[in-house]
Each structure stands twice: as structure tokens, then as C-alpha cells.
């Protein structure tokens, strides 16, 4: 059981759906939405939010800097 829980917030208007974040995620949190944004891109979102550990790997490889990462230590 992970001691931390994380979450990401994707700036969906600016996401270009490049998917570079997807293989970067160690816990397979991210997927591409079925919907498209104003530019016509399927944007990244937390398909599996419970698995997020807030490691920020997705955010640091995101070329467009659209991912913000939050993390909390879980209370036992």
C-alpha cells in the first residue's frame, strides 16, 4: 500500500494529446480522453486516479508544461 496519494491536473485546453506522459507514468494513471479540446486534441486525464503517487514524472516530460502535480501523505 502506497504511503502517498497524488493527483494531477491537466490544463486540457493546452494539452496536445502527444501521449509522452503515458509511458512516463509508473502506475498507469493517465489515458487520453474520448473528448477533444478546442484544438481538436484528445487530452490527457487521470483514467485511473487512485493509482497516482504524485511522482511528477508525467509533468516533467510534458513538452507543453500542462500538468500540475499534487501530493499528500496518507494518514495511516
Amino acid at each position: 500500500m502506497a504511503k502517498v496519494q497524488g493527483a494531477i491536473v491537466v490544463d486540457t485546453d493546452r494539452c496536445k494529446g502527444c501521449e509522452v506522459c503515458i509511458p512516463a507514468c509508473p502506475t498507469e494513471v493517465i489515458g487520453l480522453a474520448n473528448e477533444v479540446n478546442g484544438k481538436g486534441y484528445h487530452y490527457a486525464y487521470m483514467a485511473n486516479p487512485d493509482a497516482c503517487i504524485g511522482c511528477a514524472n508525467c509533468a516533467i516530460v510534458c513538452p507543453d508544461g500542462v500538468i500540475s502535480v499534487y501530493k499528500v501523505k496518507k494518514v495511516a
Binding site: G6, R14, K16, G17, C18, E19, V20, Y41, G54, A56, A59, I60, V61, C62, P63, D64, G65, V66, I67, S68, V69, Y70, K71
Partner: peptide, 24 residues
């Protein structure tokens, strides 16, 4: 918050293609 885009990057949408390493 543990990570977000630095304020030294402007809010302009990058002109690079999706997935281009330039942005990173």
C-alpha cells in the same frame, strides 16, 4: 502542489508540434 510549470515560462501556447522535445 509539488510540480507546476515555472513562471519563467509564459502562458503562450508553444508553437511546437505535439510531443516535440523543444518544450521540455
Amino acid at each position: 502542489l509539488v510540480y507546476t510549470k515555472t513562471k519563467l515560462m509564459t502562458d503562450n501556447i508553444l508553437s511546437y508540434c505535439p510531443g516535440c522535445g523543444h518544450g521540455t
